[in-house]
């Protein structure tokens, strides 16, 4: 993470700061709407963390890029109805996938660091602590009688039992396996 040591001027040509801040909040509202016990991203202030973390990660110009990308996709969002907002954000995602991905990920991480959101997780029946290291979680101890494996499977080759295997048919000096991994 590059932490900027000086304040840079806002790049010219972007929206004014008030409009830009509102625009970022509107974007967060589309990404993380409120529903049931879940507060919206906007209501827990994700946009403030998003702005700060974009600044820290990429510099101030990145904030203007986000605003510009939303506008290029049909924004600003403020004057649009719900369906149109979603359509604009979808276009942003399609046209600027890397930038959008960064915004989305920062928004998600920031959202789930919020105490009210942690409360919502607990409301689902999951014990979830934003700072679990302090008290830990109540995980039952290993029970030797219950948890020890009884399958008896597994083997190893002792040192003096290592034998030569025949690799002549494997053709490992080739470079044949070019199609590998998930693209096969």
């Amino acid at each position: 993470m590059e932490i900027e040591m000086r304040s840079e001027p806002m790049p010219k040509g972007g929206a004014g700061p008030a409009a830009a801040a509102d625009g970022l909040a509107d974007l967060v509202e589309v990404l993380l709407p409120g529903e049931g016990v879940w507060p919206s991203g906007k209501s827990v202030g994700v946009q403030a963390f998003l702005a700060l973390r974009l600044l820290q990660e990429r510099g101030r110009a990145e904030l203007a890029r986000v605003t510009a990308a939303v506008i290029a996709a049909g924004g600003p969002l403020a004057s649009l109805d719900a369906a149109a907002r979603i359509a604009v954000v979808r276009r942003f995602e399609a046209e600027e996938p890397a930038l959008f991905g960064l915004v989305r990920d920062i928004a998600y991480v920031s959202y789930y660091e919020n105490p009210f959101v942690a409360e919502a997780i607990n409301a689902q029946g999951h014990p979830y602590d934003l700072r679990p290291h302090i008290k830990g979680y109540p995980v039952p101890r290993f029970d030797l009688a219950r948890d020890t494996p009884r399958h008896g499977r597994g083997r190893y080759v002792p040192t003096d039992a290592v034998r030569r295997v025949d690799v002549s048919a494997l053709d490992l000096t080739s470079d044949a396996t070019q199609s590998w991994g998930l693209k096969r």
């Binding site: 190893y156 080759v157 002792p158 040192t159 290592v162 034998r163 030569r164 295997v165 690799v167 490992l172």
Partner: peptide, 14 residues
């Protein structure tokens, strides 16, 4: 590690 990890030269020589 396991014992054969120390004997790969004997096992296949690669």
């Amino acid at each position: 590690y396991r014992p054969s990890d120390f004997r790969k030269g004997d096992e296949h020589g690669l």
